[in-house]
Design a protein around this nucleic acid. Structure first.
Length: 202
DNA sequence: CGCCAGGGCCATA
DNA sequence: TATGGCCATGGC
């Protein structure tokens, strides 16, 4: 996949905070719907704005991405956490990966995948991200790993050096490939990975 | 129409 | 600790 797609330096966002917000908004939601929500923010997808806006207004802004009443609260909580670091990436990074991961997981609405996405793509910590695409890929390749988040995460982290750039691209390649070739097509025609995912949906 | 999307929380046993 | 219901919109 690296030979096919190259180095992607990924996550569709312009700032670390937009990565954080996007990670919440995309929970069990297609990215096209997330884009509509992001667009509704206009120039206001900033921690200062989300902190100041009312919950009801926030619901209306993010409505297109679904689960809006929950996600609005999640965004508020995540933003409050970030405020403790003065909305500063470098201040967050004064803590270790493990410390920051634990703090993120303590936030209501931030589970393992959301936490790891934020750690990796907003803060460049070497924390491997596992998602539905990753599980589906392993299954289709008949790799003998339990389809459990922490087990899969350890599987990759034990096999790869703890390099944020590497993890960034690894997950990016899996997502890009899945979206382009392995989403709904019965046969993965043109898939540079296996060429055949047998139409299986985990 | 029905299914699904880059999850996570909570109640229940 | 393990499962199941629930949250909600838009694309296909």
């Amino acid at each position: 996949m690296l030979a096919h797609y190259g180095q992607l330096d990924w996550w569709p966002a312009d700032t670390p905070y937009e990565v954080m917000a996007g990670a919440v908004l995309t929970q069990n939601t297609s990215w096209t719907n997330v884009e509509k929500a992001i667009k509704n923010f206009g120039e206001d997808l900033t921690p200062e704005y989300v902190e100041a806006v009312t919950l009801d207004e926030l619901c209306e802004i993010i409505r297109p991405c679904g689960f809006f009443s929950r996600k609005a609260g999640y965004l508020k909580s995540l933003t409050s956490w970030y405020k403790r670091y003065d909305y500063s990436v470098s201040k967050v990074k004064e803590r270790t990966l493990e410390e920051t991961r634990r703090e993120l997981l303590d936030i209501k609405g931030v589970g393992a995948e959301t936490a790891d996405s934020i750690l990796l793509y907003a803060f460049s910590y070497p924390s491997f991200v596992v998602d539905a695409y990753t599980k589906r890929l392993l299954h289709r390749l008949d790799i003998d790993v339990e389809l459990d988040y922490d087990v899969i995460k350890a599987y990759f982290e034990n096999a790869l050096p703890p390099d944020a750039g590497l993890y960034n691209n690894y997950h990016a390649l899996i997502v890009i490939n899945a979206k382009e070739h392995c989403k709904k097509t019965p046969i993965c025609e043109g898939c540079p990975l296996s060429g055949d995912c047998k139409g299986q949906n985990i």
